[in-house]
Design a binder for these strands. Structure first.
Length: 422
RNA sequence: GGAGACGUCGCAUAGUUCGGCCUAGUGCACCACCCUGCUAAGGUGGAGUCCUCGUAAGGGGACCGCGGGUUCAAAUCCCGCCGUCUCCGCCA
C-alpha cells in the first residue's frame, strides 16, 4: 500500500515510478480523486453522527412528552446517518481498491525497462571451464544417486522429484550452512507455517499478480505459500514492534510450493523449476531510513554464501518493469550454470520499504512516540536450486563432484561425491 | 466431528442480569513531577489505536475478536464467521 501522504503531496513521484515500471500512471489520478471523495464522505458522516450523538444523549435523559418529541425529531436523522455511513464506507473501499493498484514507488536511479534491462553491478569468480564435456545437473544427480526425477513424477506428477542419498544430505548440509551463517549475523531462526489464511496471503500482495502461481485448498480456505516470506511478513502483522535495539532479523526455513502455471515448457529438465523445494529466507524489519543499507547487507550475506560454495556469479539490479508490486528495488544474484552457458537466478532480495508493512500494519514507535510503518526486506540465503550450480560447477571428468569446503563439516568431512554403481 | 465456556484500551480483570448513569472502572507495568537518603515504598498527574478538520491552539468521528442486524441509542440484544479453552469422539 502506498503512502497516502506521498500520494496527496507528491503525486508526480508516483506517476514517474508507474511509468518506469511500464504501469499505468492514470491510476494515480483515480486514487487521488478517490481519496478526496473518501474524505468528503467521511466528514459528512462524522458531522451527522456528532449531531445524532447529541440527540441520543438528550433522549436518554428526557421523559414523557419531551421524549416523544425528541424521538420524532431524531428519527429522520438516524436514516441520514445510516446513509452517510454507507456512503463513507463505500468511498473508503473505492479508495483502497484504487490505491492497491499502485505499486511501490521505485527507488530513484534503478534501471528503467523490463526483464532484459537489468544492470549488472558486478561479476565475481571465474567462469569454470572443462577439458571434457560437462554433464548437466540431472545427469550428474542421477549417476550420483542424488536426484530421482522419474519416481518423483510417478508419485506426484511433472516437476516433482526425490532427493535421495547424497542429494538429500547435500540439501540439508546447504541449509545448515546457511542457517549457521544467519545465526552468526544475528538472525532469529524460524520454521514457518506453509499454509496461511487468505488475509495474510492478500496482505503480502501475493494474491494479486501471483495468484495463478499459488496452490489453494478450498476445503480449508488456506493457501500454500510459495515462500516463507509470506509467513514472515505476517508474523508481526497488526503489531507495534520495538526497533530500539536494532532491526529484527529472521531466517525462515520452509518448503515452498509453486504451481508454475505460466511456465509450461520452460526448464522442464531437472530441478531448476519445480513445484516444491526448500528455502532459507532472510526477512528484516527495520527503520525506513535504514532500509537501503540493510538491502546491501542482505546482498553481502548472499554473496558470502555463493563465494563459500565456489560459485561464479553476477549481481544484477533488476529493472523497474520486472519488480514485484511490493519491491522498490530488487537485486538478483545469478550463478553460472555450465551446461546452460548462462547465469541463472539463485537469490533475490527485495527492499519493500514501507509498502508491505502498510498493508499488514506493522509499525514501530518513533522517538516522538508516534507510530510509523516499518520497512521490510527479504532475501534468499539458500534454496534447493543451488544444488544445480554446485553439482555442475564442481564436477570432474570421471563423473565425481568435489564438495565445496564450506559444506564438508556438514557431511562428515566428505570431500568427493562419487557415482554409485550403475 | 459432538457438547459447553469464553474473546473488553500493553498484561490481568470489572462492566453484559434489565440497552442510555460507560466520557469503558480497577490492578500491574509505563512516563513526568513531588516526597523520602539509601537493592524499596508512598503521593500527584499523564498516557491506547486509527481516521479526519485545522498553519496552530484545538475540534469531530471510529474502535470492547471480525462482519452484519434490531434501535433515537449497542461492550450490553439477535444472526453469521474467526479464534481460545475444557470434556468426549477420531487419528498418520
Amino acid at each position: 500500500m502506498i503512502d497516502p501522504v506521498l500520494l496527496r503531496e507528491n503525486p508526480d513521484v508516483i506517476r514517474a515510478s508507474q511509468v518506469a515500471r511500464g504501469s499505468d500512471p492514470s491510476f494515480v489520478d483515480v486514487a487521488l480523486d478517490a481519496d478526496a471523495a473518501r474524505r468528503a464522505a467521511l466528514a459528512q458522516f462524522e458531522e451527522l453522527r456528532a449531531e445524532q450523538n447529541v440527540f441520543s444523549k438528550k433522549v436518554g435523559q428526557a421523559q414523557g412528552d419531551e421524549k416523544k418529541a425528541l424521538l420524532a425529531e431524531v428519527a429522520q436523522l438516524a436514516a441520514k446517518v445510516k446513509e452517510a455511513n454507507a456512503a463513507a464506507n463505500a468511498a473508503d473501499e473505492a479508495y483502497t481498491e484504487a490505491a492497491r493498484k499502485i505499486q511501490n514507488p521505485i527507488i530513484d536511479g534503478i534501471p528503467a525497462g523490463g526483464e532484459d534491462n537489468f544492470v549488472t553491478l558486478r561479476e565475481v569468480g571465474t567462469i569454470p571451464t572443462f577439458d571434457f564435456e560437462p554433464k548437466d545437473h540431472l545427469e550428474l544427480g542421477e549417476s550420483l544417486g542424488a536426484i530421482d526425477m522419474a519416481r518423483g513424477t510417478k508419485v506426484s506428477g511433472a516437476r516433482f522429484y526425490f532427493l535421495r542419498g547424497i542429494g538429500a544430505r547435500l540439501e540439508l548440509a546447504l541449509m545448515n550452512l546457511a542457517l549457521d551463517r544467519a545465526l552468526e549475523a544475528g538472525f532469529i531462526p524460524l520454521i514457518t507455517p506453509t499454509l496461511v489464511r487468505p488475509d495474510i496471503m492478500q496482505g503480502t500482495g501475493f494474491l494479486g499478480e501471483h495468484s495463478d502461481e499459488i496452490y489453494y485448498l478450498p476445503a480449508d480456505d488456506l493457501y500454500l505459500t510459495g515462500t516463507s516470506e509470506v509467513a514472515l511478513a505476517g508474523y508481526h502483522s497488526d503489531e507495534i514492534i520495538d526497533l530500539a535495539e536494532g532491526p529484527l532479523r529472521y531466517a525462515g526455513w520452509s518448503t515452498c510450493y509453486r504451481r508454475e502455471a505460466g511456465s509450461s515448457g520452460k526448464d522442464t529438465r531437472g530441478i531448476i523449476r519445480v513445484h516444491q523445494f526448500n528455502k532459507l529466507e532472510m526477512f528484516v524489519y527495520t527503520l525506513p531510513e535504514e532500509a537501503e543499507a540493510e538491502h546491501d547487507r542482505l546482498v553481502a550475506w548472499q554473496e558470502g554464501m555463493l563465494q563459500s560454495l565456489g560459485l561464479s556469479y553476477r549481481v544484477i539490479d533488476v529493472a523497474a518493469g520486472d519488480l514485484g508490486s511490493s519491491a522498490a528495488r530488487k537485486f538478483d544474484i545469478e550463478a553460472w550454470v555450465p551446461t546452460q552457458g548462462a547465469f541463472r537466478e539463485l537469490t533475490s532480495t527485495s527492499n519493500c520499504t514501507t509498502y508491505q508493512s502498510r498493508r499488514l500494519e506493522t509499525r514501530y514507535r518513533t522517538e516522538s512516540g508516534k507510530t510509523a510503518p516499518v520497512a521490510t526486506l527479504n532475501g534468499t540465503l539458500a534454496t534447493t536450486r543451488w544444488l544445480v550450480a554446485i553439482l555442475e560447477t564442481h564436477q570432474q571428468a570421471d563423473g565425481s563432484v568435489i564438495v565445496p569446503e564450506a559444506l564438508r563439516p556438514y557431511l562428515g568431512g566428505l570431500s568427493v561425491i562419487t557415482p554409485v554403481g550403475v
